[in-house]
Design a protein around this nucleic acid. Structure first.
Length: 178
DNA sequence: TATACGATCACCT
DNA sequence: GGTGATCGTATAC
């Protein structure tokens, strides 16, 4: 089932945990790739110094203030893209960064990073602000209800040493892949 | 207009 | 453990 807008309108931490084990689906040139989400991070509000919206609404961050269920995609380090899903309610800037996915028949080291998975799934700024509840080009499907999830681990977010006290928040969630 | 730097990754020691 | 690639964005001037 395609996850509806309502799924993303909850607290960002709930969504970040809830997305683990769900399937990120990419439709590109009539081909479909399903990727199980294995790692996420939450970025919540202007008070979160690691969140791009900590400097308020700008041309880049305006998408984070949009409806939940939109894709927020930005370029990092001049060469990689990162995919986020906008959460909570309109005008409150928050999103979940997709940091890792696993695809059947694909070596995990091709998709175990936010830049790597966007490269593999051909996700770039063309899909910025895309509504992922439409079920076209890019969407997310719920996990199989009879699948038991392994324990969810939480830890500090990556690459945000500049974020003062916010870098201590345990807002990174991941499944342990054996 | 100019400049500093980053929600990364691959490759090196 | 460390470093370079490479360019959009935010901020300073």
């Amino acid at each position: 089932m395609i996850l509806p807008k309502k799924f993303y309108s909850r607290s960002t931490l709930q969504v970040a945990k809830g997305l683990l084990g769900c399937f990120l689906v990419r439709e590109y040139k009539s081909r479909i790739i399903k990727a199980m989400i294995t790692e996420t991070e939450a970025y919540i509000g202007e008070d979160d110094l690691a969140c791009h919206a900590s400097r308020g609404k700008t041309p880049r961050t305006v998408v984070m203030y949009d409806q939940p269920g939109r894709a927020y995609i930005y370029m990092v380090y001049g060469m990689y893209h990162c995919l986020n899903i906008v959460t909570e309610k309109k005008d409150f800037p928050a999103a979940v960064l997709i940091r890792g996915v696993q695809i059947k028949e694909v070596s995990y080291n091709k998709t175990n990073g936010p830049g790597k998975l966007c490269k593999f799934l051909r996700i770039d700024k063309c899909l910025n602000r895309w509504d992922i509840t439409r079920g076209e080009k890019l969407w997310i499907e719920g996990r199989d209800s009879n699948i038991k999830l392994p324990r969810i681990k939480k830890s500090k977010r990556m690459g945000i040493d500049y974020a003062k006290h916010c870098r201590e928040y345990l807002w990174r969630f991941h499944l342990t892949i054996k």
